[in-house]
Design a protein around this nucleic acid. Structure first.
Lengths: 230, 230
DNA sequence: CCAAAAGTGTTGACGGTACACCCATGC
DNA sequence: GCATGGGTGTACCGTCAACACTTTTGG
């Protein structure tokens, strides 16, 4: 029980945001450049050693903040990766989280030579098994968006149905019928009409909605969603 | 990176099997009695420290074998539990797996004063946060059985549709229409008719089926199911 | 008035549930 | 034959995708 532990425990996070790219928004992920071996110079997921005083989710959120200056709107554990040969320098088990951050804030984050946003479906060769990890995180995001109501975590406080629909379309990579999307969302009862509308377009002004914050974003069964430090 | 790690890494497994209880089969879990503090004398999930030379899944399967003398028919990672206060003696992060083992073999396992099978829905107060872990594993098992084809992992090589249906009924705790269950399973295409039937009943003899072993039991996206040591 | 997107109505295909009914065996 | 569970047929109902249609704005 109390023998010396030869296994390193790390926490990493796959962070998703929508970032403007020309006219459209693109699903993006921030990566950090490794400054040390192994994989010096390669891009990798933000993360680091687990901290004895913090919960795993707190460590994930803190690392997220340290690299992007952002707080996650949604944070969920993805998987514990622990193959013996995933790091060439010794045994490392990584508990990986995935997070959604708000579009409107994603620009304010730090970005320099060692931190950069990449399009989620066009990543370079990453360090360790991080390409696999991102692929799995993308799969989870897409799967969860089909049956859960987490899309608003990529938007701001208030939004129109068209904006919310665009989020679904970008993430799922397929067009959605506006009429059916509206009914689908309305039936789920997660939206609150703010009463306001957005004028300015050459068309009927859309209503502004807000999420019902008393509801859980996703059903994780008996596991309460991890508390995020404020 | 290579500083001394103050966090212990453990691997535990929630093992499910159907065990006869009077006339009926009951969803059961083997537990081990702790011989040391903390929680000496209390029942706990089988597990132990992670082993540098093994993958996490291998460690889970080995611990499973050491306590029950069984090999898992299905093994999947459940969650990494890492709250700072989940162990009173220091920080322990447990990567928990859940497993299904075959009914026909579940009797052969070791059972003594320190290893015992309990009904999954009637457990005592367990050590650490193991009651929560089992609750979550049960939720995952039930959720997964509704959309996946893992039930056969609780049965033997061959089985009748009625036996497979009973597995679903016991796990999901609700009766299922035999006619619709048949169509549902047949449509999924996972069953192979062995051509044999089972005589002896005072009724039309049911056919024996076998699972199509070329198919994956469950869709875990880009993550290939963990290899089990044979 | 026209263009464009918001928002509503309607229809038809599909999948699941409920349940009536026939089949094959032991006694 | 009759009881019993195996196995088939079918009708109903709710959900969802497709798409026609109306509404409200800016120009």
């Amino acid at each position: 029980m109390s023998t010396r532990n030869a296994i390193e425990l790390a926490v990493s996070t796959v962070i998703f945001a929508l970032r403007p790219e020309g006219e459209e928004a693109v699903l993006s992920i921030p990566l950090v450049r490794r400054t040390r071996d192994p994989f010096a110079g390669r891009w990798a997921l933000p993360g680091g050693a687990a901290e004895p005083a913090e919960s795993l989710a707190e460590t994930a959120a803190r690392k997220l903040f340290e690299t992007t200056a952002l707080r996650p709107a949604y944070l969920e554990q993805l998987y514990a990766f622990g193959d013996p040969d995933r790091s060439p320098t010794g045994r490392v088990v990584s508990v990986v989280y995935w997070a959604l951050v708000r579009t409107e804030l994603a620009d304010e984050g730090v970005e320099d030579d060692n931190v950069r946003w990449f399009a989620a479906d066009d990543l370079p060769d990453l360090a360790f098994d991080h390409n696999l990890i991102v692929r799995y995180a993308l799969w989870r995001l897409r799967t969860k968006m089909e049956y859960s109501r987490i899309a608003h975590a990529l938007l701001g406080e208030t939004f129109t149905l068209a904006e919310l629909r665009r989020v679904h379309e970008i993430v799922l990579e397929k067009p959605l019928d506006p009429a059916n999307f509206r009914r689908h969302i309305e039936a789920s009862g997660v939206l609150v009409d703010t009463g306001e509308t957005v004028p300015g377009g050459r068309h009927r002004p859309p209503r502004l909605y807000r999420y019902d914050t008393t509801l859980q974003l996703a059903d994780n069964g008996p596991l309460t969603p991890p508390k995020e430090p404020q």
